[in-house]
Design a binder for these strands. Structure first.
Length: 314
DNA sequence: GGCCAGGCTAGCA
DNA sequence: TGCTAGCATGGC
């Protein structure tokens, strides 16, 4: 088997173990091969199924060195595309220090940054995958969302066997477009959710939806384009810009998780309204995505901690 | 048992 | 233009 290896040393602070933790606790963990010191995933690149494995022996360090192995690429060009895909997914070309410097006047955020120093954005592989996952994630809790996502991937994604490992590549637009709505109903999809997902994939396949064009648009323009599609509201479009395109300045002001986190960490006596979130976020200009991500993550940790304390009676 | 989940649409006034 | 029931299910 042909394996290409790349050695990567991100700019500190950078915590590889935070990505692992993020994946384990997310509703997308089924997409990954997760080990103590590595992460892996299958991808379809230029028609070739490749498996990317990132290993990091010193993953708890805030200046880690890690190795990215690409298996199954027929030539160097495909291997390099896989490598660049993971540079995107792991936000390797986005140093954190400008964000930290910008937030230095906010004691609440500084406390969270101290706790999460080195946490960078874990992005989805591409806008298509991001859109499908975001539509599935609308409204439902994370446990149920994971069941739905896993069922879709196992229904129509390509299963790949590599060195005894069995993993699925995320379905292509063509694979989802071929489904019928009733194929998803037994998987506990609502009729509407099935329609939104399959219709979106069909739009991509027949060329009505141009995902590549989103890259050239500013945030407002891209959101306005996406929300014209049935099943895609502002929240979903914002998720795609944040997690699919990796826009650093995206503010999901209506998101319930962000509003809960602001109330919690800033000690508000009410859940902030969307205009109140926008007002507060003027201080975050340029890094809204990062602040949102840190607040979401910190609230998740606080909830997990509270749950743990409750279960142990402390 | 009821309400809320990292929402959205269709239908109604 | 603005409001709300309904969607499917799991967790608390």
């Amino acid at each position: 088997m042909n394996i290409s290896t790349y050695t990567i040393t991100p700019q500190a602070p950078y915590r590889f173990d935070f990505f692992r933790e993020r994946i384990v606790t997310s509703s997308n963990s089924y997409l990954y091969d997760i080990g103590d010191q590595h992460l892996g995933r299958a991808h379809l690149i230029d028609g070739h199924h490749v498996f990317v494995r990132v290993s990091c022996p010193n993953q708890g360090s805030d200046a880690p060195e890690f190795h990215l192995h690409v298996e199954g690429a027929p030539d160097e060009a495909v291997a390099e595309k896989a490598m660049r895909l993971w540079r995107h997914m792991l936000s390797l070309d986005r140093p954190l220090y400008p964000f930290y410097a910008k937030m230095s006047g906010d004691p609440v955020l500084c406390g969270i940054i101290d706790q999460l120093s080195g946490l960078n954005l874990l992005l989805e592989a591409d806008p298509f995958e991001s859109m499908i996952l975001s539509i599935i994630g609308q409204q439902v809790n994370l446990t149920f969302a994971e069941n739905l996502k896993r069922a879709l991937v196992e229904l129509c994604g390509t299963r790949i066997e590599l060195n005894g490992r069995s993993v699925y590549a995320f379905p292509t637009p063509e694979q989802i477009a071929r489904l019928q709505y009733e194929d998803l109903r037994p998987l506990k999809y609502s009729q509407r959710k099935a329609e939104y997902i399959i219709d979106f994939a069909r739009g991509v396949v027949n060329g009505e939806i141009d995902l590549a064009a989103l890259e050239q648009m500013d945030n407002d323009e891209a959101i306005a384009t996406l929300v014209k599609l049935r099943g895609i509201g502002r929240w979903t479009a914002e998720c795609v810009l944040l997690f699919g395109l990796g826009r650093p300045d995206l503010l999901p002001a209506a998101d319930i998780g962000l509003r809960n986190a602001i109330q919690h960490f800033y000690g508000l006596d009410h859940q902030p309204t969307e205009p109140e979130v926008r007002e507060r976020a003027t201080a975050w200009a340029g890094y809204e995505s990062y602040v949102t991500y840190y607040l979401w993550t910190a609230l998740g940790l606080a909830k997990a901690q509270a749950k743990k304390q409750k279960s142990t009676g402390n």
